Amino acid sequence: MNRPVSFPDPQTLSAWRHDFHRHPEIAFEERRTQGRIVEILREQGLAPVTGLGGGTGVVATIEGKRGPGRSIGLRADIDALPIEELNDFDHRSTLPGRMHACGHDGHTTMLLGAACALARDPDFAGRVHCIFQPAEESEGGGRVMVEEGLFERFPMEAVYGMHNWPGLAVGEAAVHDGPVMAAFDVFTLRLSGRGCHAAMPHLGTDVVLAACQLATQLQGLISRETPPHQAAVLSITQFHAGDAYNVIPETVELRGTVRCYDAALKARLEQRFRDAVDATARFHGLEAEFDYQARYPATLNSAEHAARCAEVLETLPGIRRVHRDLPPSMGSEDFAFMLARCPGAYIWLGNGDSAALHNPAYDFNDAIAPLGVAYWQALVRSLLAE
């Protein structure tokens, strides 16, 4: 089951990854990336399909030589982030304000390597759909692929994903039986009142005071209304108000995120947030415009599929330890949309002592690319053995 990686070799994987890193493309703009993926897949005799995912996604199907059997999906994200890279190595980004700061260049490379290896030696039954998904970073490319018919055009019984994880040692992996990543909602709140001179606050309605009170009170939704055993985070990340020393402005705008794992808790937090906004606006005599958007659901593994992934990892050369008890992350992942429609599992593969994800000094660790390729191959051969 666990065959050594002979093709592509580590040098080829690094070359592919560095090329992707030099040419980062953000959500739904991944045209060059798509073209390179298609080129490499066609060199191995595959017939990749494009068009899903707003036009920049790719799906390549590999038929096993052992005949009919189950169908599964393997997914990698391909987009970059709007971040200015601070690294100075030779493969740094060539595009200002664009950077592979989350390792999607590595994820793409690992799935490409596995697809090429499996295409050369399809010693399994059934078929594998290799899914190269655009726009993971906050734009919901996974949702778009599902809405555009991914699972209807490419039926599969299970779907699997993988992400590099800084701080987890090379040779280590983590597999969760349930929640892996949190649901992710965003909000924009605009409070409007009557501006006035700062020396005469009684002549106006102070939107800054109201916004500050609300920002403080909202944390009670987490610390006093959320059960201690249920994780949730409410973060106000932007506060925009006024542009003069001596004027209380007419408007203030707050933006931020709400995250948790439980769907019922998520709905309750949204309703209580709305209640707090309405009460604050009434008390201070303000108008409130509240835009609350549900972006990503929680990423939830199927325990059965997670256990199978862990079994494969534990027998894989190069993997020294598989963590089964690490806490899930409050970060979010749009692979959640695929898992909501099709059972499967999403694992973390240690990236070593690198900079954090979404950091301008981050870089994917080339040493783990062969491990990722080997894992994908071993998972396929385990699941589709007959």
Rank of each mutant, 00 (worst) to 15 (best):
D123P: 02
D90Y: 15
R92F: 12
Y362W: 15
H18M: 01
C212D: 07
M181A: 04
G106Y: 09
R36Q: 12
R120L: 11
L52Q: 10
C212W: 08
E84Q: 15
V175H: 12
P122G: 13
G350H: 11
G352P: 03
V233R: 03
S235R: 10
A182S: 07
R66F: 07
D275S: 01
L209K: 14
I78A: 10
I222D: 02
A310G: 11
R66P: 00
E147V: 05
H104T: 06
G331R: 02
A174F: 04
L203T: 09
S235C: 15
V159G: 06
T280K: 02
P343R: 13
A294Q: 15
R272V: 11
A361G: 02
V322G: 11
T109K: 09
D9Q: 13
M330P: 15
P297V: 15
T280L: 04
I347N: 12
G142K: 05
G51D: 07
T109R: 08
R92M: 15
P328E: 01
A281F: 06
L349P: 04
H197D: 12
T205M: 00
D79R: 02
V146D: 09
D79S: 13
R70N: 06
T251A: 13
W348V: 00
L234V: 11
S6V: 07
D363V: 00
T237M: 04
R127I: 06
G149E: 09
R70L: 14
E147S: 13
V312E: 04
T56P: 14
D88T: 13
A298P: 03
A374D: 08
D177F: 02
F151G: 04
Q213M: 05
L168H: 08
M330L: 11
H240I: 07
H18R: 10
C342R: 12
A345Y: 10
S302K: 01
I347T: 08
V312C: 05
A356M: 03
M99Y: 10
S93P: 15
F290T: 01
M338T: 00
E43V: 04
A241Y: 06
Q293G: 01
C102T: 08
P297S: 08
A60I: 10
F337N: 02
P122H: 13
A117K: 08
I222E: 00
I319V: 15
V128I: 13
E85L: 15
S138G: 01
S138K: 10
S6A: 10
G140F: 09
V170S: 10
L41G: 13
S302R: 02
T108W: 12
A198Q: 02
G344D: 03
L168I: 09
A215N: 11
G352W: 12
G161W: 04
R127Q: 15
R36T: 04
R259C: 04
L52W: 12
H91N: 04
